[in-house]
Write a protein that binds this DNA or RNA. Structure first.
Lengths: 175, 175
DNA sequence: GAGGTATGATTGACGTGTCAATGAGGTGAG
DNA sequence: CTCACCTCATTGACACGTCAATCATACCTC
């Protein structure tokens, strides 16, 4: 049974209306597979520092924040997570002593999330090996030309996913 | 913390030995973020057909298999999953009536996994919308040149991750 | 300032993924 | 034959992610 792939079909006359070719679909599958593999490898590497990729993202965002703390919702926006996902994860990280949640001074509903000393140490120890791993299994594989092309492709995908920011310019107040 | 600009580079060569630049790291982060977003969008789309991305992968592999069934371990190898992950997932899919597991005729340890009628119907209904979604949020964003460049980049990454198959070529006549 | 609504964050339920351990059955050396 | 060892597949425990529901507080309107 064939449920995907391209079959004979009359073109609608517009490029956008064309079906995907098998080649395009194969590239899509390769993208999914390859990025999944990279995530798996880097996740395994990070685990040797006692962190998951999610832990690392949270700790990194906090360490880069002004004053090294963030409101829970700001943190969620920074790393583009759902609120509830963050809440669950912060609970687990708090239990492990990596972060701390305090009542927010300016809004009694809110929480201020900050690194603990332990969290900062663990993050610092994990950072260099992670950079090396990204370099080794990703950056070392590509030429300068390929980097440029990839940046261009990713920009095209982002423009396509978020057309409203396609023409955004610093200092341009209009939307 | 600027890490750009140190060391000469061999023309058109790789960047082995140099540190990653902030630009290269930014491209890595963009790759991770963008592919995560695509997966999220497509997962949400697939969910309208009552399937997860994992379900779809399993059903598709079975539908493409000779005789529409596979040994559990063959299925795991086909979609590159851990055995235990597959076992858990097949349990859930069996409960939902999408697949069936029968004792293997040639090896009493094994299981033969096959599509149920329901599973085949659900897959067929999900396939076209999924293709359209991949086209809409991925394929439609890229030019032919960008497709070529992306295929080249993914091949380079795969070659780097699996050097043992680095020299395999399609159309070689012999492998 | 009282009511209704919006927002910040958490919780519970459930599906999912990983690791280590297990059991059940094949396989080969002696 | 039988013992050691391997592979096939499953299980349990636990971490993780999503959805819908909840709760408390802020904000806005009258």
């Amino acid at each position: 049974m064939v449920v995907d792939g391209d079959g004979p079909r009359v073109a609608t006359g517009s490029v956008v209306g064309r079906r995907m070719t098998t080649g395009e679909l194969a590239i899509w599958r390769s993208l999914v597979d390859t990025t999944a593999e990279l995530r798996r490898i880097l996740g395994a590497q990070l685990q040797q520092s006692g962190l998951s990729a999610a832990d690392y993202q949270v700790l990194l965002a906090l360490s880069e924040a002004d004053g090294r703390w963030l409101r829970s919702s700001e943190l969620a926006a920074t790393i583009d997570w759902e609120r509830s996902r963050l809440s669950h994860h912060l609970g687990r990280m708090e239990r492990r002593g990596l972060i701390r949640r305090d009542d927010c001074a300016t809004d009694s509903r809110g929480a201020e999330v900050s690194l603990t000393g332990d969290g900062a140490v663990v993050l610092r120890r994990a950072a260099a090996p992670r950079m090396r791993a990204i370099k080794k299994c990703f950056a070392d594989a590509l030429t300068l030309e390929q980097f440029d092309a990839l940046a261009d492709i990713l920009q095209a995908l982002q423009n396509h996913l978020h057309p409203e920011v396609k023409f955004a310019r610093a200092g341009d107040g209009r939307s």
